[in-house]
């Protein structure tokens, strides 16, 4: 079974600081890491590979230095890494990115076999849009399962899959036919530590590196800045909220009493809230 995991190298957002005086975002000296959400996808992919046999290919689009996160994925235990890199891709928004990745995935199918599953993390920590995964699925005409918490059942031979998907208000159990694109939720597994063999293999591996032409992507108007309708008007740090936190004093520490006290406090400050809630629960 061939599985592809789409990953992204991102700035470690925990290291980005807001300048206290100018209120601008300071990016200097911010290290890059593999998007943490993608590691859950990678681990999940490798578990199913280990169970049914086959290969995991990791794919990333980015500058040449994105090779670092691919090599790391190989150290974790992925079998093959593909880097899609070209100046034509610079400045891509989620639309252009999903176009390029879909192109590369088609090429991967040609070169290395048809993937039954394509994984991504639920979103990246730099853009937080969660759009690229679904964008790829749409372009490749794949079924998509987003925010997957658990793969309940996978039958590669019969070609179907059942997953649990976290949704508002509960868990959905969904079944569909393979091939499929899955975006994985965080915290559902823990990335393994590769063996010494994995580490050596990763250190020696030749990373498959494609530019647009290599990947068979010909329509460059859909790539990079030109193919990106998204316009970033301004990047700024949100102003601190005006509302302050309040301390609520109470003597009765039972759970019900605490809840009552807090609700009373909230209703006192948000006068329309109680009525809205009443209407909502009645309707």
């Amino acid at each position: 079974m061939h599985i592809v995991v789409c990953m992204k190298q991102v700035p470690d957002s925990a290291q980005i600081r807001v300048h206290p005086v100018t209120n601008t975002i300071m990016r200097q000296g911010v290290p890059t890491i593999s998007n943490p959400y993608d590691l859950f996808a990678l681990e999940e992919a490798m578990r199913w590979r280990d169970r049914f046999g086959g290969e995991v290919t990791v794919l990333t689009m980015g500058p040449p230095m994105a090779e670092d996160s691919l090599r790391k994925a190989l150290t974790f235990g992925a079998d093959r890494a593909v880097l899609l890199t070209d100046r034509f891709f610079a400045g891509s928004d989620t639309l252009a990115t999903s176009f390029a990745l879909a192109g590369a995935l088609a090429k991967i199918e040609q070169e290395f076999g048809k993937p039954l599953m394509i994984f991504t993390g639920k979103q990246t920590i730099d853009g937080d849009t969660a759009q690229v995964g679904p964008g790829i699925a749409k372009r490749l005409g794949l079924n998509q399962l987003t925010y997957v918490a658990r793969i309940v059942d996978l039958a590669p031979e019969e070609g179907h899959i059942t997953v649990e998907r976290r949704a508002e208000g509960g868990v959905q159990v969904l079944s569909t036919r393979l091939p499929v694109l899955i975006t994985m939720l965080e915290g559902v597994n823990e990335i393994r530590r590769g063996s010494l063999d994995d580490a050596f293999r990763a250190a020696r591996a030749k990373i498959v590196t494609w530019n647009a032409a290599d990947a068979g992507i010909t329509d460059l108007t859909k790539c990079g800045l030109r193919g990106s309708p998204t316009i970033v008007k301004k990047v700024f740090a949100p102003p601190p909220r005006a509302e302050k936190a309040y301390q609520v004093a109470t003597t009765d520490l039972s759970m019900e009493a605490l809840a009552e006290t807090v609700m009373d406090e909230i209703f006192k400050r948000q006068t329309s809230l109680e009525g809205d809630l009443m209407r909502f629960s009645a309707g």
């Binding site: 530590r193 590769g194 063996s195 010494l196 580490a199 050596f200």
Partner: peptide, 8 residues
């Protein structure tokens, strides 16, 4: 080394 199968 500290990896599985970790002798070089």
């Amino acid at each position: 080394t500290d990896r599985d199968g970790g002798t070089a």
